[in-house]
Design a protein around this nucleic acid. Structure first.
Length: 944
RNA sequence: GGACGGUUGGCGCAGCGGUAGCGCGUCUCCCUGACACGGAGAAGGUCACAGGUUCGAUCCCUGUACCGUCCACCA
């Protein structure tokens, strides 16, 4: 396949006698026409291009068809190893992409992030950097295990326990090999220029080595210990899960007010709880020490209803006297706060809800019941005893396990931890951000990071899952697993046997938190701990671009491990991209079902359109609103698609007119005004784009490109080129070719497929650039074409042109007559006569013109269009137009008068502002008097 | 509860101290030899609200309201 193959004619059949607008509306809902349906052969195309036969110029369809062009161009890049990166003498630029879950599918957040990374990567590559963008996927312990468990449950009616650990893990690997690379191919569809030969997976053999090496050091240096903490227990997985895997849902619940009788029979104390079933495990009631109401009852005991246990009433600062009744029941085993209070007061911990979320033997009569069933029974039994004071409706957050859907059960558990606060690892990670070695973009995230790091808590690193990196620690079978001293570090069983001097040993059943492995990503993917070449060259990497929600979980931990193991920061810049929200401004999520599938958008409009739509919003904002796909349409991407089509067609126009033109590598030296002007605008745009990319304001770069290409280049320059070609002016071709070629380079990082396709078809491009692909061409920088004089002079041509068009359109005049312009600078006008005449379809006459003509005063001279005959309707239209102009002028004059009438304005405002205001004032007065006079003429009968 | 962000024409966004801009949508005209996924015009905004600073505020400061994101153990 070569890029030329995309040339096909596409044109809807002509339907005689039907209004165009109607047909357009009728067509609006239809899918884009597929090429190759033979319209050309049936004579529907308006224009025939030279076909085949060794012609130099490609045939291009009248519409850009991304579907096949993108696949073709991507295949071409791959075939030519364009994304491959190996160390050389150039400056490196490296991004290790945030590895998505192997189970994952591309979502809008990914699409945005990959657009950012690939755009910046392509830009840097064109600037001459040695760019490596290293892709990979994450084994994603819980997520993947959940998917495979679900699959075997559905297909084989088995649980993972039926299979056993080894067989189950085998199944997960099989699943990963078969389905795990879906997201990789989706990234490729976006156009990602990543080095796919280096694709990494967090459970690759070499990656496991990295994990072992890291674990060993942390273990021997005393970072890793066994401790007991309150953890988030997922009854669904029978495992600890991390905070990020929790989905806190606001729910309407109840607050039960329970009467707890004093043991001495002196009445009762009322406690409020949202979880009455935990009362079976209560070992105290706490009140605030400052709470006067309860001063007297401190030291009393309570006989716990239904259980009969005697428990104390004690004082603790944690209790807020203002909440509920000011008295709190304490269940140390089942509530994080109560756990802390229990430790403070040395309370017994009684487990009444087991790991499977069923009531334990300690629950007495309720043993074996599900926790929610137990709740109902307990409440009913308490009510029967008259111990329920009242039940209040209560809205609160309930934590759910986002993978299994079970309500999280907090419980103390013996887990492996990694020490954080106060350690060298954490301190250096704070320092490296504080001293500015690592930059955060947008900057506001810097403070967030520092604040979090300064209050960091120890990191629970063990999980009771089967899929993941099994902890490389072993013990003798009969040793106590909760004693740290029972364990030794060993990579292999043999090593462990030697260390423990026994064949009767076991490896820990636990698996490492997935974030433990992704924390090593920037260096483990570059060959550490074995090979140094890539690491020495590409590390520290240049950019880490990611979502704000994993700032702590991932970004902070990469900094820590990078500092500790490599002795260097893992990256220079951290860019936190915006969160993509739905049309109502809510986060897109699976549970809300408000997500948009980026692949659907690519199918609909092409990857480049999606990229541009995202790029134009990718700045320093915290969020981006994205509208849903409705009836096969998505506004934002459609607009971007239209832009892509505009680029396509403008390029097509240029190529059609370049027959016989021999481009050269030399930069043009413009002489005519319009050439000087467009080159000046190009130079400005080049600066804006480089600036935008360099400062992570890709939105600014995108807007600059859009405006330049559509407004300046297409609407003015290309239009102005037409009469020049008609007049045989060959000088236009050099500039036209040059501007288009440079524009394609500028646009390439954001719209890679489209621009490469066009560039491949642009004659002379490869020779001039000295490379075979646009993605390898030099990115434009510092073009010497800034020309303020040209921009100012061209403004005259534009304003006169607009004035003539405006009078013509508003008064609905026939084109083709004469347009008189009393120009302030007749030479400029004369020099651009052909252009103005072509753009307006009026013959330009420089001079005053008939006094009764249609009048439009401008800063560059009055424009008058003669009015040969006039109907009353036309007269009314003109009067209306002038009156509305006058009304606007009056409004504006009011503003200026107010300012000029104030003496302190002239005194205190800068002189330039005062002068400018006076000039504007004078111009408005002049315009006003001219229009008033004209209006007067219209109102006197003689004018007709 | 804390932190952060937003509030500009019907919609999506720019502008961030000198009389409000773009695209879509709406209305009018137009297939004019690149493009109707287009061209030329038009209508449409007291820039959330209240104070303050300033000659002057959409823009700076303070507060309020609403929307939202992230973080967080208040029963």
């Amino acid at each position: 396949m070569s890029p030329g193959d995309v040339g096909l004619f596409v044109r809807p059949p002509r339907e005689q006698g039907v209004k165009w607008r109607k047909r357009r509306k009728a067509r609006a809902g239809l899918p884009n026409l597929q090429p190759g349906t033979g319209f050309a052969a049936e004579g529907y195309c308006r224009r025939r291009f030279p076909t085949g036969g060794g012609k130099r110029y490609m045939e291009l369809a009248t519409r850009y068809e991304p579907q096949e062009a993108e696949a073709a161009i991507y295949a071409l890049w791959l075939a030519n190893h364009c994304f491959k990166a190996t160390p050389d003498s150039r400056t490196p630029y490296c991004i290790t992409i945030p590895p998505p879950n192997v189970t994952g599918a591309l979502h809008m957040g990914h699409a945005l992030n990959h657009t950012v990374m690939d755009t910046l990567g392509r830009w840097k590559r064109m600037l001459g950097f040695n760019v490596l963008i290293l892709p990979g996927t994450d084994h994603a312990g819980i997520a993947t295990q959940a998917v495979v468990e679900k699959k075997i449950r559905a297909e084989e009616k088995k649980t993972r326990h039926d299979l056993g650990r080894e067989a189950f893990v085998e199944k997960v690997w099989e699943w990963k090999e078969e389905y795990g690379n879906k997201i990789v191919s989706q990234m490729q569809r976006l156009g990602a220029s990543y080095d796919w030969d280096r694709l990494r997976f967090t459970m690759d053999e070499s990656y496991v080595e990295a994990i072992h090496t890291v674990f060993e050091k942390l273990y021997t240096d005393g970072y890793i210990y066994i401790g007991e903490r309150m953890v988030n227990w997922s009854p669904g997985f029978q495992s600890v899960i991390s905070d990020i895997e929790i989905d806190n849902r606001e729910e309407d619940g109840s607050l039960w007010h329970l009467r707890y009788p004093y043991s001495d029979g002196s009445g009762h104390i009322i406690v409020a709880t949202s979880r009455p079933e935990t009362m079976l495990g209560d070992t105290a009631v706490a009140v605030s020490p400052k709470d006067e109401r309860y001063k007297a009852v401190l030291g009393k005991t309570i006989t716990l209803p239904l259980v009969g246990r005697e428990i104390p009433v004690l004082a603790d600062d944690f209790v807020d006297p203002a909440f509920g009744t000011g008295a709190v029941k304490i269940t140390p085993f089942h509530d994080p706060n109560d756990y802390e209070m229990g430790n403070r007061h040395g309370l017994e911990r009684i487990e009444v809800i087991g790991p499977d979320a069923k009531m334990t033997a300690h629950a007495g009569a309720y043993a074996g019941l599900d926790r929610f069933e137990a709740r109902k029974r307990i409440v009913a039994d308490l009510e029967a005893l008259g111990l329920v004071e009242k039940i209040e409706p209560y809205r609160h957050a309930v934590p759910y396990c986002d993978r299994s859907g079970a309500v999280i059960e907090p419980r103390p558990s013996s887990q492996w931890f990694c020490k954080m606060g106060g350690t060298e690892m954490v301190n250096t990670s704070i320092e490296v951000v504080r001293d500015g070695s690592i930059r955060f973009l947008p900057e506001r995230y810097r403070e967030l990071y520092l604040r979090w790091m300064e209050n960091i808590r120890d990191w629970p690193i063990s999980r009771q899952l089967w899929w993941g990196h099994r902890l490389p620690v072993w013990r003798k079978t009969d040793a106590n697993p909760e004693e740290a001293s029972s364990w030794v570090f060993a990579r292999t069983k043999a090593e462990a046997e030697a260390k423990l001097a026994s064949p009767d040993i076991l490896q820990s059943d636990d698996v490492l938190d997935t974030w433990f492995s992704s924390a090593l990503w920037p260096f483990a993917t570059l060959g550490w701990p074995h090979t140094e070449a890539d690491l020495n060259y590409y590390y520290p990497t240049s950019l880490l671009s990611t979502a704000q929600e994993i700032l702590y979980l991932w970004v902070a931990r990469m900094i820590m491990t990078g500092e500790l193991f490599i002795g260097k920061k893992p990256f220079d810049d951290v860019y936190i991209h915006a969160t993509v929200l739905d049309e109502h401004g809510r986060r897109m999520s699976k549970s809300k079902g408000n997500g948009i599938d980026p692949v659907e958008l690519i199918d609909l409009y092409g990857a480049d359109a999606l990229r541009f739509a995202l790029a134009r919003e990718a700045g320093q904002r915290q969020d981006i609103r994205f509208k849903p796909v409705k009836a096969g349409k998505q506004e934002q991407v459609e607009q971007a698609r239209n832009f892509a089509n505009k680029i396509w067609n403008a390029s097509r126009f240029v190529m059609m007119n370049l027959e016989g033109f021999e481009p050269s590598a030399a930069a043009p030296t413009p002489t005519t005004l319009v050439d000087r002007w467009i080159l000046s605008r190009l130079a400005t745009t080049v600066d804006a784009v480089n600036e935008g990319f360099a400062t992570y304001n890709i939105d600014d770069a995108s807007r600059a490109l859009y405006e330049f290409f559509w407004s300046d280049f297409c609407d003015w320059y290309v239009e102005a080129a037409k009469p020049r070609f008609a007049a045989g002016d060959e000088s236009a071709k050099t500039v036209l070719w040059f501007v288009l070629e440079r524009a394609l380079r500028l646009l390439h990082p954001i719209l890679p497929h489209l621009t490469e396709t066009l560039w491949q078809a642009l004659p002379g491009a490869k020779e001039a650039a000295g490379c075979d692909f646009l993605m390898q061409a030099a990115f434009p920088q510092d073009l010497p074409y800034r020309d303020e004089a040209a921009e100012a002079e061209w403004e005259m041509v534009q304003e006169i042109t607009v004035a003539i068009r405006n009078v013509q359109a508003v008064n609905n005049l026939k084109k083709g007559g004469e347009a008189f312009v009393a120009a302030t600078n007749p030479d400029v006008l004369e020099g651009n006569r052909a252009i103005i005449e072509f753009l307006t379809r009026f013959t330009l006459v420089i001079g005053d013109g008939p006094s009764d003509g249609y009048l439009q005063p401008t800063r560059f001279g009055d424009v008058r269009l003669p009015r040969p005959e006039v109907t009353p309707e036309e007269l009314a239209t003109e009067k209306l137009r002038i009156e509305s102009d006058l009304a606007k002028i009056e409004l504006d004059l009011g503003v200026l008068n107010k300012r000029l009438d104030d003496p302190s304005f002239a005194e205190r405002a800068p002189e330039a502002v005062v002068t400018k205001t006076r000039t504007q004032h004078a111009e408005l007065l002049d315009k006003q008097s001219k229009l008033t006079e004209r209006l007067g003429q219209l109102s006197t009968p003689s004018a007709q």
